[in-house]
């Protein structure tokens, strides 16, 4: 049985067994849930299908959300890609487009997979689906990498938080990026220890990020934070795959995220009373929406 108290412990166990983290998590979860591994793989595969549907739906839709605060950005990104305007290369541009697309589908009451939350639902699928296309990975490989993402997410949820209301956006988009980074490393053939470093690097980059949604709606800045979260995941994965290590060990990074989340004032934890939500423009928009 795995206790999900430490990412390092997960990585060490995997290294010792010579297996990827996903294999350990899958075997453990099958035991704990008293279900077959095949059964869990099938259920995870369903989520992957919903993720892919949301990505392709969102990228072409261009429609606005009920509040009018978001919508249409994924389409712009796609058009820019088609016009050959990619600055950071196709993998990055495609990742951004998918993250925006899925977050927009969420804002428009479409079907998504909370990963780990609805607000951050675009990050993990954007990274993994883009890598799948770019490097011809199989569906099975991507499904397995979701178990790595989930395993690390369980540690973060247990030792810190994955909710914006509890820990700020670092806990939501930061955790999603960390999970995506680790999954990406595993998908691209990195070691379990590299997964742990990627997780740490991604979180470190957004420590202190507050949750300040305009009008309390999961749209501004959330949709774009999905894009930057996905980019953060790619950056962290790329560094980790190059052998770059996090100086602060991953579990200590997670503990730091918790401390920072606890110290964050309530006005910056989803209450829409501070940060961007408290700007003159945001307040004006909120008044118009809720008039």
């Amino acid at each position: 049985m795995i206790s999900y108290d430490s990412v390092q412990e997960l990585a060490d166990k995997a290294t010792k067994k010579g297996k990827p983290i996903s294999a350990l998590v899958l075997a453990d979860q099958a035991l704990q849930m008293e279900r077959s591994q095949q059964d869990l793989i099938e259920e995870m595969n369903k989520s992957l299908q919903v993720m892919a549907e949301a990505a392709s739906k969102g990228i072409n839709s261009g429609s606005k959300s009920a509040s009018g605060l978001s919508g249409g950005d994924a389409l712009k990104m796609k058009q820019a890609i088609h016009a050959g305007q990619s600055l950071g290369g196709m993998v990055l541009s495609e990742t951004l487009a998918k993250a925006l697309a899925i977050a927009e589908v969420n804002a428009c009451m479409g079907r998504i997979v909370a990963a780990p939350t609805a607000g951050s639902c675009g990050i993990i699928p954007a990274v993994l689906l883009t890598l799948k296309e770019a490097y011809d990975l199989t569906e099975e490989q991507v499904v397995m990498s979701l178990f790595t993402a989930a395993g690390l997410g369980m540690v973060i949820a247990k030792k810190a938080s994955i909710s914006g209301a509890e820990g700020g956006c670092q806990a939501e988009c930061g955790s999603a990026a960390a999970m995506a980074a680790a999954a990406a490393v595993e998908l691209m053939g990195g070691t379990p220890q590299m997964c742990a470093h990627a997780c740490a690097i991604a979180i470190k980059s957004v420590l202190g990020l507050v949750c300040d949604p305009v009008a309390g709606l999961v749209e501004v800045p959330c949709v774009k934070r999905n894009a930057s979260g996905a980019a953060n995941a790619l950056i962290a994965a790329e560094m980790a795959l190059a052998g770059i290590e996090s100086v602060i060990p991953v579990d200590e990074v997670i503990a730091a995220m918790k401390d920072i989340g606890d110290a964050m004032p309530k006005t910056l934890k989803e209450t829409a009373e501070g940060g961007l939500a408290d700007t003159p423009t945001a307040k004006k928009m909120a008044r118009e929406i809720f008039r």
Binding site: K46, S47, N106, R111, V113, G119, L146, A150, V218
Partner: peptide
């Protein structure tokens, strides 16, 4: 953690 499948936004 990866789930549930749901209709957004929150």
């Amino acid at each position: 953690i990866i789930g549930p499948i749901m209709v957004g936004p929150s």
